[in-house]
Design a protein around this nucleic acid. Sequence first.
DNA 1: CGCATAGTTGACTACGCTCAACCCTGGTGG
DNA 2: CCACCAGGGTTGAGCGTAGTCAACTATGCG
Lengths: 210, 210
Amino acid sequence: MRRYSQLDLTNLDGLPSDLRAVAVVQQAIAGQVIFQQGEAAASFFIVRNGRVKLERYTDEGRMVTLQVARPGEGVGVVALMSDTYSSAAIAEVSSQLIRYPKTALINALPIYPALAETLLIMLLQIIHSLEIRLELRDIRASQQRVLRYLRYQTQDREQSIITFDRPLKEIATDLGFTPETLSRALTRLEQAGLISRQDRQITLHPSSTA
Amino acid sequence: MRRYSQLDLTNLDGLPSDLRAVAVVQQAIAGQVIFQQGEAAASFFIVRNGRVKLERYTDEGRMVTLQVARPGEGVGVVALMSDTYSSAAIAEVSSQLIRYPKTALINALPIYPALAETLLIMLLQIIHSLEIRLELRDIRASQQRVLRYLRYQTQDREQSIITFDRPLKEIATDLGFTPETLSRALTRLEQAGLISRQDRQITLHPSSTA
DNA sequence: CGCATAGTTGACTACGCTCAACCCTGGTGG
DNA sequence: CCACCAGGGTTGAGCGTAGTCAACTATGCG
C-alpha cells in the first residue's frame, strides 16, 4: 500500500489548495483539553509535534488511556463517522496540531483517492496499537506486562535501551497499573537481572527471550 | 458519511464487475481456522453469516479475543497494510465468508471512492469496538464489568433483555474472565436484584443506572 | 527556604485465579 | 429404555497478587 500515492497531512504545502485552505494550525499548552468526550465531533486532528493522549472516562470515574498520539498520528478519527467524540483528547506536553474540519475531509474523499489511503493507513495503525494495548491488559502479572511493554518499545528501534520521555505516573496508567505497582515491578525486574535501570532509562537484557 | 455512496461488499451482485470477479464465497465449519496469526496476509474477508472470532496468542500462551465479527463485519482488515495477520481468525460456528484478495482491493481503491468509504467505516467500527473492549478491561470488579458489558449489549436495541447466543465460556474469555468468575458475577448480580436470569437469557433491571 | 510533585517502600485488604468436586443436560450405544 | 459418557456450567476452598492507604525521600521551582 505504501507504494501508492498518499497525502501527507502534516505537510501543509504539499496539500491540494482546497484542503490547504481549511487546515488550521493549532497550539495547545501542556494539560490543555483539545476536545472533550461526548462533545460534538467537528474536526479531525493531526499531531505535528508534542504528545496528545486520548482517554475515556468510565461511569465509575476510572480513566483509560486509549492512545498516545505522537507526531504524524491522527487524533479524533472517530469524528469521520460518529457525531460525538468517544474520548477526550488532552495535550500531555505543549503540542502543535493541525485541525481539519470533518466535512471538508469527507467532501475531499471522493476527489483525492490518496487521501483515502492516508486515512486508511492511519486507522490501521490505530487498530494495531489498540490490539497491542488490549493484549497487554490480558497479562495480569505486573512484571510480565511491563516486560512485554518494554519489548514492544524496543522492537521498533535496534537498541534495547528505552528512555521514558513521560513521567512514570503516565506510563503506569497507560499500562493499566497504579504507579506503585509499576515501581515495584521495575525493581523486581531489576533484581531478577532482566533489566538495568538508572532513573528513567531502562536497559533490557537479552536473557530469556520467552 | 452515510449519505455518501458506499459499496456493499456483502452483496456480490451490487459490485462492479472487476471486484465481483475476484470475490470468492467461502464456507467454514465450526472451529475452523480461517487464517493463522503470523500467516502471510493475502486476503480480506467479510462475514456473510455465522460468527468469526479474532484472537491473538501471547507468548505465555494466554489467548485474547480481539473481536467477534458478525454478518457484515470485516475480518483480516490488517491485511490491507501489514504483510502478516496480527491475529488468528476462527469460525465459532458454521459460517460463510466472502474473500477478497488484498491486491485486488488495493488496486480498486483509487478507482472506486465508494470502496474507500466503505472500508473507512468498517475500520472505524472496529476501532470503536476495540475501545469499548479496552474500557471494559479496565473495570476490575467482575460484577461491574459484566454489568457494563450487558448494558453495551442492550443499548443498541430497545429491550433490556439479552439472550446469549454463545456459550458462557466464550463470553467469559471475551470479557477477560474465567468461566467461574463470570458465573459467580452473574449469580451475585442476580442476588443483588440488578438482573434476572433464566439460563442464557438475562433481563437487565433499570435500577441504579450509575 | 519551603512547598508541591514524582517516586519509592511498607503493611493490609480484596478479589480473581486455580484446582477440585459436583450437577445437569443431551447424545450415543447396548 | 436405560446406562454411560462428555461437556457446559456451578459451587467451594485456598492462594497470589495488584489495589489501597500511608509514610517517607528526593527533586525541582517559586
